[in-house]
Every structure is written in structure tokens, then in C-alpha cells.
């Protein structure tokens, strides 16, 4: 496996993208996937149930000090920030919102960048805020691989555009090729997703 973890962030419009993604990703030989979407407090379990029943994925809500396992999807709970520690455990915090968001994509991404370095694959999707851009920059700087949703395919282009203002992502993709791109990258095959720059 090329990666020890995948992080995914998204906001407005990302729910449908994630539904398709989790329905199509392989069920085995996958690293743990950590997801931050801007969900309200007390709705986390509803989202988890929804994804699991509709996509057949193995999603759980992130718990404090949890040790992540492969082939599972971890969703950050509404009303808390989720972070990865250097020993690759998860932790939660009840800090102030960051970029008006709680959970914040930046908080997860910046900590994951440190925990996983170049063994991290990061995906930033559609959204109406700039949350996640700083996190993508940190991941990029620490050697992780970055995928940004092509803003022209995004219901809200603000989030991918904010990231593109800071980094040249390794891959710029439309939602319909996202699952293939991730699968290929994880397995080490040459990804079929549209490449960006000299990638």
C-alpha cells in the first residue's frame, strides 16, 4: 500500500460526492479514511447510519484516543474537532470553531500531515468556505499526496479554489473519477484521474 491513511474534507455539496465515492471504493486493502464534513452537532450518528446503509461502507464516528484500522471510514463528530496524534491515534477537542467550523478540516488535515507525512493521501472536495486550504498546504509541504476536486465540477467552488490558491495539487479530478483515482493511488497503479501539471 502506498498510503497509511486518507483524509477527506468537504462541505456544501460534498455529501453526494461522498455517497458515490464510498459506494465505489474497494472494501479491502484500504488504509483508514478520516472524513471531516461540516455537519451539525448531534447529527453524527444519523450520517454514519446513512452512509453505512446506503453505501455499504464501514463508517464509524471518531472516538477520542481511538486507534484507527484499515478498511474503515472515520467520521469526525459534529461539535468537536478531530485530530491525529503523532502515534496515529485519534483525539477530539472542544476548542473554538476554526474557520467558523467545528469540526474543521484544517484541524484534522494539519495534524494528519504531521502524523503521516508522505504516507498521507488528502482529498478536498466542494464547499463554500476556505476551510481545508491551509491543511492541504501543510500536507503538501510535508510530502503527502493531494487531490482537489476540479472547481468547475463543484457545487460550491470556494473550497477547492482556496486550496488551489495555495498549492498545485498532485491531482485535480471530477467526482466521477475520484474513486478510481484513489484506488489506483492506493494500489500504486498509475492513476487514471486527470493529472495536474507534471504529476
Amino acid at each position: 500500500m502506498q498510503f497509511d491513511a486518507i483524509v477527506i474534507g468537504g462541505s456544501h455539496g460534498s455529501f453526494d460526492v461522498l455517497m458515490n465515492l464510498f459506494a465505489s471504493l474497494p472494501r479491502s486493502d484500504m488504509p483508514p479514511i478520516f472524513v471531516v464534513i461540516h455537519i451539525p452537532r448531534d447529527s453524527t450518528q444519523d450520517f454514519v447510519t446513512h452512509f453505512n446503509t446506503r453505501c455499504g461502507c464501514r463508517m464509524v464516528e471518531i472516538e477520542d484516543k481511538q486507534v484507527p484500522e484499515g478498511d474503515r471510514v472515520y467520521l469526525a463528530p459534529g461539535g468537536y474537532h478531530a485530530l491525529l496524534e503523532r502515534d496515529r491515534r485519534l483525539s477530539l477537542s472542544s476548542d473554538e470553531p476554526v474557520n467558523h467550523a467545528q469540526p474543521s478540516i484544517d484541524v484534522l488535515f494539519e495534524s494528519a500531515a504531521v502524523a503521516y507525512g508522505n504516507r498521507l493521501l488528502a482529498v478536498l472536495l466542494t464547499g463554500a468556505s476556505s476551510d481545508g486550504a491551509a491543511g492541504m498546504a501543510r500536507i503538501d509541504a510535508l510530502g503527502g499526496t493531494t487531490i482537489v476536486q476540479d472547481p468547475t465540477t463543484a457545487r460550491s467552488p470556494v473550497m477547492p479554489k482556496a486550496a488551489l490558491a495555495l498549492i498545485r495539487p498532485d491531482h485535480l479530478v471530477a467526482p466521477d473519477v475520484l474513486a478510481d483515482t484513489i484506488r489506483d493511488l492506493v494500489s500504486g497503479a498509475q492513476p487514471r484521474g486527470m493529472m495536474h501539471g507534471d504529476g
Partner: peptide, 9 residues
């Protein structure tokens, strides 16, 4: 203290 959050603070 959990380090990730402490470092952020």
C-alpha cells in the same frame, strides 16, 4: 496532555 491539540494551542 494530548499533543496535537496542545501544539495547536
Amino acid at each position: 496532555y494530548s499533543r496535537a491539540s496542545l501544539e495547536r494551542r
